[in-house]
């Protein structure tokens, strides 16, 4: 996407307003809504990583939640063994997810299209099955509970703890902004352009001399690492990690977020994540049939709004 100068200025202003608007949430919102917004931000990071795959590399994964879950479990296992510190815990989430992504990527990326979808779905469910059945490590369906949030080194002097009102939300906001910036950079780099070329026309890219499978593999592992970071945040936020995090519907909901928001924009998935999370957590407090409504919204979007929310704005 190439924007004119005026359009990029407007886009930057929009991003700035959005970030500042989100940052004020702890000042006025009730506790429950801060909680929902925190979950939405974590899901937004996850959805952005999926957008790197789906929007830029053209790889629709139905097993992305596996990396989210692996990140959460890795963080949880370490935190429960008295490892403290924000960076080590986020890092272990990313690294664990990336390591798991290596064999899965190597096997699934030999295929494309419908096969890729089916394979990622199958591998994702395999890891979910592991999380359920490997009771000695994961405690099965009960999950790992009582995960402490890390203390912030250097901020002790000000006595800021991540359990304070809004503190964890702000942390997630910062991670989301950094993730957005880094992924944006990646998308605009020669690597990102190469991925777009592969998405558009893999055969031609091979004929030009690009080892296309390696590029897709790199994108796959990178996206998994980012999903792992989101998973680690989720474990810290909830205080527990359960197999539900890896379930295929989580991957499906992330696809919903990306498509409803607008793929290949990075900001679209963020908006989409808020829509999904507000439907899931917000609506469900008032309505029993939130899945029905979400499913219907979703069907309508697929049929009538191919560009997602971002596409609507761009056309307006």
């Amino acid at each position: 996407m190439t924007l004119g100068r005026a359009a990029s200025a407007r886009y930057a202003a929009f991003l700035g307003t959005l970030a500042i608007g989100l940052a004020t949430i702890p000042l006025w919102a009730p506790r429950f809504w801060i909680y929902i917004a925190t979950q939405a931000l974590i899901f937004a990071i996850f959805a952005m990583s999926l957008d790197l795959l789906l929007g830029y590399a053209g790889l629709p994964s139905l097993g992305h939640a596996a990396f989210f879950g692996v990140g959460a479990y890795a963080c949880a296992l370490l935190a429960l063994r008295q490892v403290d510190g924000l960076f080590p815990l986020l890092l272990v989430g990313a690294v664990a997810a990336a390591i798991v992504a290596v064999p899965i990527g190597a096997l699934s990326l030999r295929t494309t299209g419908i096969y890729f979808l089916m394979l990622t779905l199958a591998f994702g469910q395999m890891l979910w099955g592991l999380a359920v059945n490997w009771v000695s490590l994961t405690r099965g369906t009960d999950g790992l509970i009582g995960i402490p949030r890390p203390t912030l080194v250097g901020l002790d002097a000000f006595e800021i703890s991540l359990y304070e009102r809004g503190a964890f939300f702000i942390l997630c906001l910062i991670v989301a902004i950094v993730t957005f910036a880094l992924l944006q950079m990646l998308a605009r780099s020669p690597f990102g352009k190469t991925l777009e070329g592969i998405r558009e026309n893999e055969r031609r890219m091979r004929a030009l001399g690009f080892p296309t499978v390696r590029y897709r593999f790199a994108a796959f592992v990178t996206a998994a690492a980012v999903a792992g970071i989101a998973g680690a945040l989720a474990a810290m936020s909830n205080g527990y990690a359960t197999p539900d995090l890896l379930y295929w519907t989580v991957s499906g909901l992330a696809l919903v977020a990306v498509v409803v928001g607008g793929a290949r924009s990075l900001i679209g998935p963020v908006l989409g994540a808020f829509v999904v999370l507000f439907a899931q957590l917000g609506l469900s407090t008032y309505l029993e049939r939130w899945e029905l409504i979400l499913g219907a919204i979703f069907i309508a979007f697929v049929l009538f709004v191919p560009g997602g929310l971002v596409g609507l704005v761009r056309r307006a």
């Binding site: 629709p60 919903v256 498509v259 899945e291 029905l292 499913g295 979703f298 697929v302």
Partner: peptide
């Protein structure tokens, strides 16, 4: 395929609910 996946995923949510 992607549109199909998304649409049919929407239906799985609706049906299960």
């Amino acid at each position: 395929h992607l549109a199909q996946v998304l649409l049919t995923f929407g239906f799985t949510l609706v049906f299960v609910d």
